[in-house]
Amino acid sequence: MPELVTSPSENPVALACRELVVGYGAHNVLDGVSLEIQTGCWTAIVGPNGSGKSTLLRALAGLQAIRGGTVWLQGRRLGAWPRRERARRLGWLAQSATATDLTAAEVVALGRFAHGGWLAHRDVDDDAAIERAMRATGSLRWAARRVSTLSGGERQRVHLARVLAVEAAVLLLDEPTTHLDPPHQEDVARLLRLQAHGCGVAVLSAIHDLSLALTADRLVVLGEHGLVGHGSVREALREDWLSLAFRTRVDVVEHDGVHLWRPAVAALPP
């Protein structure tokens, strides 16, 4: 019987891992990582390139074979969930938004696969979920267009809509803001916050942009040698996890209650 993980905050734990070991070849990218991802909370993963952000997300999604440790989804071992039941609870967004000859609406509709299976016909619930997801991501007006004819940013939003259409309790998103211009990155951040706070979804996303990541509720900070820290943004800043992870000074300033990463430009001669 799983020893149920208790969380420091009052929100229940949706996804957790214990002593996770994942690697490729002779090298372990993650070695003994333990995490708890809370319901109703947006958690951002930050860290330098190659620190294992994507690997962690893939392992938590059950897409990457793990060498040790356990992943729990809603209190049950990830591997013990039947495939489609798991897919209904756990949405996953890949880092690169694939070009496909399907239309945007068809791609988003694939997000409903786990709800019906092979033989099911799309029902009213599916149609409603698809339309909601496309409206929320602002991709509705491309519904009839082939995804391969859309720009990188537009594609990204279609794939995001596909993940939202699953209506999963846990969302694992690998760089959902890549290919997006800054205002649209902010839109996505707002969307993730809304999913977490409004719909009670546990959102875990790798975010490249530090300032954007600092607007999340919690941070998972990965360094070259594994997990540096895992906690609230305030905690991360107090303990200076970012500087430890990037092995260089990371300056964060607070402006109107918003944390901003400040690039070190002061060193340049006048």
Binding site: A87, A94, T98, L110, F113, R162, V166
Partner: peptide
Amino acid sequence: RGLDALTLGEDTARSLGLS
């Protein structure tokens, strides 16, 4: 529909609940 899902990449297809 499985082939449709596969156009999105193997990982995405698996994450959708496909074997």
